[in-house]
Each structure stands twice: as structure tokens, then as C-alpha cells.
Design a protein around this nucleic acid. Structure first.
Lengths: 194, 194
DNA sequence: CTTTTCCCTTAACATATATCAACTTTTTTT
DNA sequence: AAAAAAAGTTGATATATGTTAAGGGAAAAG
């Protein structure tokens, strides 16, 4: 049950057995069925989650009721509403299961204790956040400099297995285009390939 | 010379006198004149910078030669090409002075030593990155859910003083629209206000 | 000071993508 | 297996924003 998360962490820092035991003792297992919300927008969220099975989507619902997907979280990903976690405010985004999913939850208070008592974890999360920062910057760059078709190409290159697993509609919401547009993009590129 | 950066850090962690001395001893002052590049895209960048005077822009030049601004860095901001810093690859972005500017530079090697020997700094950068992560997510959300006019409104609400200080063209590049569009947006909202 | 460069505005026109709607196919539920 | 719901496709049309171009004004450079 804890092997995936320990592996995930040990990609960046080495833990002693004691540290492993201490860390895993802080985690709570949580199961969410398809279409259930792990984090509902509008409510404070005191947890960060690590996915061990299934897949989630994190999205923002705008004033017109449109869904904009910030990230997908399959196995081996961390997800949460960082805004709510950091500032203790109601979550801006919703995190919802798109498959039956299991996550390990780390609450804010335990997180704070953990990083203060074991600097290795402070280090781990710093590194994780650096990488997330880079990924987000790339996404901003792409949204400004590439067409929908080009962003789609990059998406399938970057997440080939996700592309299989997700309804196409959700990929469109992630790319910032409508499902209709994505359908036309695929039709056009299939035509070209012939 | 170091008061601004020490204040910046002490917003999140308290330093002892020794730590202050040690930390500031790692920094190098660098001056960049208006239009000079602090970081040229394509070259590895081993530094993160803290601005003590002036203002910089970080941008990505796309294949059509168009400039897309990721961030402005006036006094009291950190800036760098995180991708290059973390992965030791050529920088994707350019950082250029839009006013005569002075920065304090922290190189990768010293940064690594610093965060390993003084966990407080690991902590500080973790917190800084959390906040940057939140800011970037908001920007992604806004780019997907708001019109150019709405993003402009938010920009002037969030950075009223920057708006004064910057050529309008650069604000457009930041918002992901053309200078012509921004000009029309301003004309339309001036008309409405009458 | 004066010249040159850069910046902003406005207009006419072009284009990518959204919207609305009808229909088909696939998936889920009963 | 049938019925219902959800997802995908395609066409006609709308719209926000981009592109190109010209002129005027501000700022920087000599």
C-alpha cells in the first residue's frame, strides 16, 4: 500500500527505515468512487493527496458553468487545492474521481510537523514544487504560443497513456478548447495522415 | 544592499545573525542596463536572481518571433529560468531588463549547499514555490476562463503600480493578446465609463 | 535641440475557434 | 437485452481576436 508513495519520495531523497515508518503513519487511506468529489470547490481543503490507484481530474468551474481542467492525477501523482492548503481559504477548484480511485491523504497539520521535524521532507516538497512550477510555466507558454492542434499533439506526446484512458471531452477541457474543436482537429489530422 | 532580500526571506522564516551573514556572503551583485539580457534563452543558467532595483521581464520567444511574457520582476521579486536551473539545460526563456536594474545572484552550487546546511532555507524556498505554484495555476485558470478584457481588469487590480510603469505593449504580451487588441479594450472601457 | 526610433491608436479585413443544433455511436443503467 | 444517458461527429453560423497597414505622438539618442 505504501510502496508507490515511498518510491515516489525516494526518487528525490533517501529515507531511513524510521523515517519511512514515521511518514507512513501520518497517511490516511481514502477511497473515492467514480464521479465522487475528493475536494469540492468552495470548501476549505486541509489535505494534499497522493494517488495510488485510479485517476482524478482537478478543474475550475467558471461563471458560465464551464469546466477547465488544471490537471489529471493518475497513479503516482500528487494532487490537492494548493491555494486552499496554503492560505486556509475555500478551495477554488474541484477534484473529482474519473475512475474508482484510492488516495493517501496528508493533512496540513501533520504536513507542517513532518517538514519541520524531518528536513528531508521539506527538501522533497521543495523539489516537487520546483518541477511543478516548471510544468506550469510550460503550460502557460504553450497556451500563449501554440494552436489547439499543436497543444493536442504535445499532450499526446507527453501523456500517451492518459490520452487512451480519458474521454476526449476531458482532454479538450484540459487543452482549453471545446470538445467540438478537438473532434475537428482529430478529423483533420487523420485526413492529413492518409 | 541586503536589507530587501533579508526582509523578503524573513517574511517566512526567522534568521539568526550568523545565518544572515552566511547567506549574504553567497550573493553576488549584478547590474544590468535597460535592454540588456540577464538570462539569454538557449544558454544554461546556473543562477536564481533577486531584484533589488529596477524591473525585468521574463519572456518566451516563439517560432514566429513573438514575445510571450511569463512574468515581470520588479524590486522584491525572485526571477530565473527555473527549467534551466533545475534540469541543467539551456534556458527556455529570456530575462531582460526593462529599466536599469540591480540583482543579487545566487548560483546553483551555493544554493544547494545553503539548503542542505540550513534547512530554514529549504523551507523558505518551499514556501516561495508553493505561492508561485498557486499564482501560476490562477493564471492558467484565467487564461482559459476569461476574455482579454477581463484578464486586463484583473491585471490592473493585482498590479496597479506595474501597470503605470510598463509600456502597454508589454502588458499585452503578458495577457496573451496583441497590443492592438489591448488598445481597443482600453478604448472600449473608456467609452463605457463615460 | 533635433532627429530618429519606438509606441499607441484606429480601420479594414482575415482567421481560429466558439456556439448552436441535429444526428450517430458508445457507454451506462435498469 | 433494452432503455437511457453520455460522448463524439459534423455542418452552419457567430464572434473574439489577430493581421496588416497607416498616421500621429512620445520618448530616447545623437
Amino acid at each position: 500500500m505504501y510502496s508507490l508513495i515511498l518510491q515516489n519520495i525516494e526518487r528525490h531523497v533517501q529515507l531511513t527505515d524510521d523515517e519511512q515508518v514515521y511518514f507512513t503513519s501520518l497517511l490516511q487511506l481514502k477511497k473515492v468512487k467514480r464521479r465522487q468529489l475528493l475536494i469540492p470547490a468552495g470548501e476549505p481543503c486541509r489535505f494534499e493527496y497522493f494517488v495510488i490507484k485510479g485517476c482524478l481530474k482537478q478543474y475550475y468551474l467558471d461563471n458560465n458553468g464551464q469546466e477547465h481542467i488544471l490537471m489529471f492525477a493518475p497513479e503516482d501523482w500528487w494532487v490537492g487545492d494548493m491555494y486552499s492548503f496554503v492560505y486556509n481559504k475555500p478551495a477554488l477548484t474541484t477534484v473529482e474521481a474519473i475512475e474508482d480511485t484510492e488516495v493517501l491523504a496528508l493533512d496540513r497539520k501533520r504536513f507542517d510537523d513532518l517538514v519541520l521535524t524531518v528536513p528531508k521532507f521539506e527538501r522533497f516538497f521543495r523539489i516537487l514544487l520546483q518541477r511543478a512550477f516548471v510544468a506550469n510555466q510550460r503550460r502557460i507558454i504553450e497556451s500563449m504560443s501554440l494552436s489547439g492542434a499543436e497543444r493536442y499533439e504535445n499532450f499526446i506526446a507527453q501523456y500517451p497513456s492518459l490520452e487512451q484512458r480519458l474521454p476526449q471531452r476531458l482532454v479538450a477541457y484540459y487543452l482549453g478548447i471545446t470538445p467540438e474543436s478537438l473532434s475537428r482537429i482529430k478529423a483533420a489530422s487523420a485526413k492529413k495522415r492518409r
